[in-house]
Each structure stands twice: as structure tokens, then as C-alpha cells.
């Protein structure tokens, strides 16, 4: 854990330019996927339209910087707030809907978004098909970093805050209510959880995460245009969610790395086949490892830990195995007690 943090902090000093830019983007995608995961993995609602919230976040940041000369760091809360409101409002009708219908409504949202961004009434703000070009932020306080490095650290700091927020949210009373709705909405409402409120709140928070990621994405790419936010982006986020593991917070990091780097590799193999590669990987995941990469790692770590320690000290080994196996159960029972 500490080694990982140290590596992530020192990395920008070792690598430069394009690769650093890619890592920053991967981190941004991870935050967007985290938003989607809060909704799907923890609340059991489906969205095929998170590209729309990513777009709203990106456009909020770009418009604020372009038209109102707002400092770049203020665009993140603004983008988050805008997306929270839109997500909450979209969630309000959506919460009357079963999972499938919500997927349908968000599917239509994702497909309608690029056209909406190009439309004439919005053109004075969005710049229509041309999009908006913005400037890269410089490192503050005379820090000896170029703007790529600074942006990496800035993204990293934001992401760290948002991950901490997500972990704490899911450990809280609110988080337990959110998960209870996923596991059994009827039982949750019988326990006194306001299902409608929590569902639309979760939708709002999920949109907020993805919107902040969108704003960071706009800062990093320095450019927003309607065709960057097509249904393909929604597919990519969804792929990242499934690959990383539905309901796993650390898995979203793997998901972010995956959707950034795998298409590049696939494009090298054959141009235009990236989407097909996504498709085949998705099918493989559903059939072979439904809990995603995070689940696979948990499985491997669990097995090797057990087989390695078993011959040395039988008693501790069996105890640790029991611990790893029972953690989720014991945490959920303690959660129930707290909820009461």
C-alpha cells in the first residue's frame, strides 16, 4: 500500500510527456468509473449514460474557464455541483423505474448527448461542433514542475480525496442504506430506509463523481468537443466497471488503466477493432470471472496466502483463511447492528 503510494508519487519524476498524460487520464477514468460503480455496484441501479455526466462536467469546466475566466481549481466543485443536480433530477423519475428501464432511459441519454451539445441554441456556450479549447494550468507557488507533472499531482490529489470520500460514504449509515437497497429494496424500505430519496441521492453522487472526472479530463486534454462524448465513452466506462469488478472500489483503478491502455494495444493489432476487443473481453469476463479483476486478485491472493502459510504454522494459517473468508459477513452483521 505504502509502496504503491510512493511509486505513484515519484512516477512523474521518472517518466515524462505522453506517458504521464496517459497515466493522468487513466486516473481520471478511474474516478469516472468509481462514480458509475457507486451507482451500479453499491446501489444496484444501471446506467449506460454516464458519458453524458462526464460531458456535463467537462463542458462546465471548459465554459467556466473560457467565458468567465474562472480559475481551473474552482471548475471541479462547479462541475460536481452541476452534475449532482442534473443527476439528482434525472434520478427522480428514474427511481420509479426498475433496473432495466433506467438502463433504457440512460441509453437514450448517452446517444442524445452529442447531438444536444452540437445544437444551435447551446452554441454560444458550447461552441457547437468546434468545441472549446482551454489552457493547461501551470504549477502554483513556483513549484519546479511542468504543467503535465502538476496536472498529474493535482489529479492524484483530487482522486485520493474522492476515493477516501467513497470509502467513508460506503462505511457510513448512508452507505449501508444504499447497499441495503441493492440487496433487497423491499426489505430496505420495511427497515425504514427512504428508498426513493437514497436512490436519487446515489444517482446524484454518482453523477458528481463522473462530472468531476469530466472536468479533470477537460483540463488534461485541453479541449472539449461533442464527438468525444459519444456512446463509445459510455461503453468504455461500463467496460471499466465490469473489468475492475462491480462493487469493488480499488477495482475501479484497474478499470481506468484498462480502458486507457487496452484500446491502444488493440488499435495497434488492427485499426478500428478496439470496440470488438472490448466486446470479446466483456463476454469472457461474464463467463469466466463475474467478479471482475478485483475478484480474481482476491481469489489468487487468498489461495496463495493459504497454501504458502499452511505447512509452516497450521493454526495461524487456518485462522487467517477464516478471516479472509469471513470478513465480508462479519462486517455486514456489524453493519446491521449499527443500523438498528
Amino acid at each position: 500500500m505504502i509502496a504503491g503510494v510512493a511509486l505513484a508519487l515519484l512516477l512523474p519524476l521518472a517518466i515524462k510527456g505522453f506517458f504521464l498524460f496517459q497515466l493522468t487520464l487513466a486516473l481520471i477514468y478511474a474516478v469516472a468509473i468509481l462514480g458509475l460503480n457507486l451507482l451500479t455496484g453499491f446501489n444496484g441501479q444501471f446506467s449506460l449514460g454516464h458519458s453524458a455526466f462526464y460531458a456535463i462536467g467537462a463542458y462546465t469546466a471548459a465554459i467556466l474557464m473560457d467565458q468567465a475566466d474562472v480559475a481551473y481549481y474552482w471548475t471541479l466543485p462547479a462541475a460536481g455541483a452541476a452534475c449532482f443536480i442534473v443527476g439528482f433530477l434525472f434520478g427522480l423519475p428514474a427511481l420509479r423505474l426498475e433496473g432495466l428501464y433506467l438502463a433504457l432511459a440512460t441509453f437514450a441519454l448517452a446517444i442524445a448527448t452529442p447531438q444536444l451539445l452540437k445544437s444551435t441554441p447551446l452554441e454560444p456556450w458550447t461552441g457547437g461542433v468546434q468545441g472549446i479549447v482551454i489552457l493547461k494550468p501551470e504549477a502554483p507557488l513556483g513549484l519546479p514542475l511542468n504543467s503535465d507533472q502538476w496536472l498529474y499531482y493535482f489529479t492524484m490529489l483530487t482522486a485520493a480525496l474522492m476515493y477516501a470520500g467513497a470509502v467513508n460514504l460506503m462505511k457510513s449509515r448512508t452507505g449501508r442504506a444504499i447497499m441495503a437497497i441493492r440487496d433487497n429494496p423491499i426489505a430496505a424500505s420495511a427497515m425504514g430506509v427512504n428508498v426513493a430519496l437514497y436512490k436519487s441521492l446515489t444517482f446524484g453522487v454518482s453523477a458528481l463523481y463522473t462530472g468531476v472526472a469530466g472536468a479533470l479530463g477537460a483540463l488534461t486534454v485541453q479541449f472539449v468537443a461533442p464527438d468525444s462524448f459519444t456512446f463509445n465513452l459510455a461503453i468504455a466506462l461500463f467496460v471499466g466497471l465490469v473489468i475492475g469488478g462491480v462493487g469493488s472500489i480499488p477495482g475501479t483503478l484497474l478499470g481506468g488503466l484498462f480502458i486507457l491502455f487496452v484500446p491502444n494495444i488493440a488499435e495497434e493489432l488492427s485499426k478500428g477493432l478496439a470496440q470488438a476487443v472490448y466486446g470479446f473481453i466483456l463476454i469472457a469476463v461474464i463467463y469466466l470471472m463475474p467478479s471482475g479483476a478485483a475478484g480474481l486478485i482476491r481469489l489468487i491472493v487468498g489461495r496463495t496466502a493459504r497454501s504458502r502459510s499452511q505447512p509452516v504454522h497450521f493454526e495461524t494459517a487456518s485462522r487467517s483463511a477464516r478471516l479472509t473468508r469471513e470478513t465480508p459477513m462479519s462486517s455486514s452483521t456489524s453493519g446491521d447492528e449499527n443500523a438498528k
Binding site: 461503453i235 472490448y278 466486446g279
Partner: peptide, 12 residues
């Protein structure tokens, strides 16, 4: 997931 996979594969 499978429908989205099918969508992506056929389109690509």
C-alpha cells in the same frame, strides 16, 4: 453486459 458486448462487437 452481454448486450453491450454484442453492440460493440457488431459495430466494430
Amino acid at each position: 453486459v452481454l448486450f453491450i458486448a454484442l453492440f460493440a462487437i457488431l459495430n466494430s
